[in-house]
Design a protein around this nucleic acid. Structure first.
Length: 883
RNA sequence: GGGAGCAUAGCUCAGUUGGUUCAGAGCGUCUGCCUUACAAGCAGAGGGUCGGGGGUUCGACUCCCUCUGCUCCCACCA
């Protein structure tokens, strides 16, 4: 069968993925081997594959396939995250399109829709990962809202509640007065908005609630909130206002007396330097209020209208009230001036309503003890962050960790297991039945109907932080005294985690906390941070920009192997990667190169009677040593997570060493057969190369591994042992290197002089030269004979060049332009003399000789003598030329 | 405003305790080749005072300070 000159991934990739699945190669069960475990960063259950996933999962797959080939029991757990906010908003949008509003549904009805949506759209992303070649153990696929995983979450809540780590508290949330819901920080968009800066007079009180004639000016953009003011704040260092210390001022219009307080939060050079503190309606003011123990007075209702606590303008919308109150202030003589002012205002992403900061009751998990342990896990080096710079970020987070707000005003997720009694008190229990029992202990005779479960669900991260534990043993997290099951004991801790630095705190740190708490052992050893995938000009990939290619289209066009290689080419750990389709083309080209190397080898006819040629014998010996040295380098790169370096080492080894040098050396003349020894060695090398390629490009390596030799059904390259480094004959590698230099030199002369590769030349060499390499030079440079001499006959016309300390002379009659040669040699001479001078400068420096290590000084001496011999040689050539 | 990081060839990046000819790789560019494995290829070549300035050192791309420019995270200015 004639093989095409282009590799066609579409005809092989699906075939081999099906083959791997059919033989259950990805599945892992505990055994006596060392485990190697990765849990997938669970993508959103209703998400679809984007370039970020491709990068992350390619790296994961490279690591897992490498470990598998290193003989470990490799297990990669796939799964999805319920992603409460993202999924719920998708379902809400879908219902809205059908004319159904969430408010019209009961919780149960809504959840039914949500589950239907999940069943229909969920897990698409996992099937897309198969296209990429991801070798996940699909039998172990998990979902963060699987019944057992959900129960683990509930149990964890109960556990921490009973431990005293969970409490209810008040927190400022982003309230959407139109959507009538709290929205997350991520759903708030800040837009510069034109507004007014109102400068108001607050009169100083005489101590009995009456105004004196003294006043201060307070500037605000929100005069409608003055009724909720709890204080006026100045910077303690502000001398302009020292006279105010300890005094009280009166809120305009309502004449309420409030204190002057001091806090360095206030910027002296912003506004008037006096800040009205309104704890209920501004986050910063709330925090100041906490420090100074101020009263919190909430005067705005859920719809954004003033309530009765405002005393005036009750029922007015906040923006209407703002205009009216400005007028009232002016009439009362309290408005000094208004200025135009532009400031960033938060808007709801979904309803475009201006966000109102609002206090609400939330559940919190104390972070102090957990964060301390998690910090220690990294500081001690038990967890390695790659690259290391993220240790700083991590430490910073852990040292300033705020308590974790774990409640969300949503329905999609694990509902908080707190059950309220009619008297307003509550019990926390892992199930309604258990809750009832506890409630009855508090209040005899109470029935299930009288219990009311908290409406909120838990933050999605409150389930994902258990992921490395719960995917193996969902019993474990809630029951720290529970003995881990077989899977958890075997696979935990996992080895490597691959994720983005943006969730270092949300996810990574919290998994460490859960691991420390429940397992007394970190959940992973190494965390590899990938960068963000950006487009060619550095913009984030986004739907609206339309600069995000569909990975499936790319796979269709170039093949998964090419896409994988293209993504890895430019991805050093922790750096953003600038994606460009040309990288994937490079991946495709490499596949094609491998394919054509295979075509060449496959096409050879073997003649068992043929003797191995000298050049082939040298080639095989050399390549064997080269293989050993490259394998050592590649393994070293892998062990340090230098994945793109490992990849590049393999790439160059295949392309340059194997194809450009080795194959060219052993290639028989067209139509001639090859000897058996060389053929067998070559096929063996090719197999080793395929194994080195496999973790990065699984499909083409499996395809050719089967094509290069007859294999039985059930055989796979996946479980072949990754090549191990052996002894390296450094002298041989160096000698070969030198020979390559000579070959390149001769080719260069051919190019310059316009000599066809078909015309053979002869060479004379002077200097240290390993003659065993002569056949190599002869074959690759098309040289008929090489003479190793002590000096060059000065009567002959020709061109010479230096390769290391070796002088190579190519006799050429009639083709030499002597003046050009002289110019070239003189330029080289000038360079070498300068070089020699600087080396001698170093060596004559007593301090250098005294301080520098022996080896460095020796190296300099070698440079000196090498340079001297080169200069000598060039001078001789010049003499000859100038005759 | 607080914190972190980056700046090396046209582009994307290496440069691993400061010392081998250390100024590198890949891609791109240029030149010559349709040489029966591969033009998605082969053979060659050019290209950077390592952002500016200062310091430490026998020696600095590498360590310290400073300036400039950029990026990210957090808090967002009443």
């Amino acid at each position: 069968m004639e093989l095409q000159s282009k590799y066609d991934p579409s005809s092989t990739e699906d075939k081999w993925y099906a083959y791997w699945l059919e033989h259950n190669f990805f599945h892992s069960e505990p055994d006596e081997r060392e485990p190697y475990t990765i849990v997938i960063p669970p993508p959103n259950v209703t998400g679809i594959l984007h370039m970020g996933h491709v990068l992350n999962n390619t790296i994961n797959d490279v690591l897992i396939r490498k470990a598998r080939m290193d003989g470990k029991n490799a297990c990669w757990i796939p799964g999805t995250d319920h992603a409460s906010i993202a999924t719920e908003s998708k379902v809400v949008a879908k219902l809205k399109a059908e004319g159904i509003s969430k408010e019209d549904l009961t919780r149960e009805e809504f959840l039914k829709h949500a589950w239907e949506w999940k069943e229909k759209h969920g897990g698409i992303i996992l099937s897309q990962l198969r296209k990429l070649g991801a070798s996940c153990d699909w039998d172990r696929t998990k979902f963060t809202m699987d019944p057992d995983l959900s129960q683990a979450v509930i149990n964890t809540f109960v556990y921490f509640y009973e431990k005293g780590y969970i409490y209810q508290g008040v927190r400022m949330v982003n309230w959407d007065p139109v959507g009538l819901t709290a929205v997350s920080d991520e759903e708030v968009v800040h837009k510069d908005t034109a507004s007014k800066f109102y400068h108001m007079r607050y009169f100083v009180s005489d101590g009995k609630g009456n105004p004196t004639d003294k006043y201060i000016v307070v500037a605000t953009t929100r005069p409608e909130t003055i009724m909720a003011d709890a204080a006026v704040c100045i910077n303690p260092a502000d001398e302009r206002y020292h006279w105010l210390k300890g005094k009280k001022v009166l809120i305009p219009l309502i004449n309420k007396e409030i204190p002057i307080i001091e806090d360095s939060y206030v910027e002296m050079d912003f506004g008037t330097g006096c800040l009205k503190v309104t704890p209920a309606h501004d986050v910063n003011d709330y925090n100041i209020g906490l420090r100074h123990n101020l009263q919190v007075l909430d005067i705005i209702d859920d719809h954004g209208c003033l309530n009765e606590k405002a005393q005036i303008l009750i029922g007015e919308d906040r923006f209407v009230a703002r205009k009216k109150i400005a007028k009232m202030l002016e009439e009362a003589g309290n408005l000094e001036k208004t200025e135009d002012y532009t400031s960033p205002i938060g808007y709801s992403e979904r309803t475009d309503a201006v966000i109102e900061p609002k206090l609400s009751k939330q559940w919190f998990l104390k972070m102090d003890v957990l964060a301390k342990a998690a910090l220690e896990s990294v500081e001690s080096g038990r967890i390695r962050l790659i690259p290391e710079k993220y240790r700083n970020t991590y430490r910073h987070w852990m040292e300033t960790a705020h308590d974790w707000c774990i409640s969300r005003q949503l329905w999609w997720g694990q509902r908080i297991p707190a059950y309220y009694l009619p008297d307003g008190s509550f019990v926390v229990a892992p199930s309604p039945e258990a809750a009832l029992q506890k409630a009855q202990e508090k209040c005899a005779g109470i029935t299930m109907d009288q219990l009311h479960q908290d409406e909120d669900v838990l933050d999605t991260w409150f389930s994902s932080w258990l992921w490395p534990i719960s995917v193996f043993d969902a019993e474990m997290p809630g029951h720290p005294d529970h003995k881990p099951n077989r899977d958890l004991s075997y696979y935990y801790p996992t080895n490597d985690l691959v994720t983005g630095p943006d969730i270092i705190f949300f996810w990574v740190a919290r998994m460490v906390m859960a691991g420390d708490e429940f397992m007394k052992e970190e959940p992973f050893r190494n965390v590899y941070f990938t960068g963000i995938v950006r487009d060619k000009i550095g913009r984030k990939m986004s739907k609206t920009l339309g600069n995000s290619p569909d990975p499936l289209v790319l796979i269709e066009k170039y093949g998964a192997d090419a896409v994988r290689l293209g993504m890895l080419l430019c991805s050093s750990a922790g750096n953003d990667i600038l994606y460009d389709e040309s990288q994937i083309e490079q991946g495709r080209n490499f596949c094609n190169k491998i394919w054509n190397a295979f075509r060449l080898v496959k096409g050879w006819a073997v003649d068992e009677t043929l003797e191995q040629s000298e050049s082939s014998a040298v080639a095989v010996d050399w390549f064997n040593n080269k293989l050993n040295s490259v394998v050592a380098v590649v393994n070293d790169h892998f062990s340090k997570f230098r994945i793109s370096d490992a990849l590049m080492a393999v790439y160059k080894f295949f392309w340059d060493d194997f194809c450009a040098w080795y194959l060219e050396l052993v290639k028989p003349a067209y139509g001639s057969p090859i000897d058996a020894a060389t053929y067998n060695a070559t096929v063996g090398f090719f197999e080793q190369l395929l194994k080195m390629v496999h973790p990065i490009m699984p499909f083409i390596s499996e395809e050719l591994w089967h094509a290069v030799r007859d294999r039985k059904d059930g055989e796979t390259i996946m479980f072949e042992r990754f090549p191990q480094a052996g002894e390296v004959n450094e002298a041989l590698l160096q000698a070969f290197e030198q020979a390559c230099g000579v070959v390149a030199g001769v080719r260069n002369i051919r190019q310059q002089k316009g000599i066809s590769p078909k015309d053979s030349l002869s060479l004379k060499v002077v200097g240290d030269y390993d003659q065993t390499l002569s056949p190599v030079i002869a074959k690759l440079a098309n040289v008929s004979n090489i003479e190793h001499l002590t000096s060059i006959d000065d009567s002959e016309a020709g061109v010479s060049f230096m390769s290391g300390t070796l002088k190579v002379f190519v006799p050429l009659s009639g083709l030499v332009d002597e003046s050009e040669e002289i110019k070239k040699l003189e330029a080289e001479l000038t360079y070498l003399e300068g070089f020699l001078k600087s080396v001698r400068g170093k060596l004559s420096n007593e301090k250098f000789v005294a301080h520098a290590p022996e080896a460095v000084v020796a190296a300099e001496r070698k440079k000196e003598s090498d340079a001297m011999s080169k200069i000598e040689s060039i001078k001789k050539s010049l003499e000859i030329l100038k005759k």
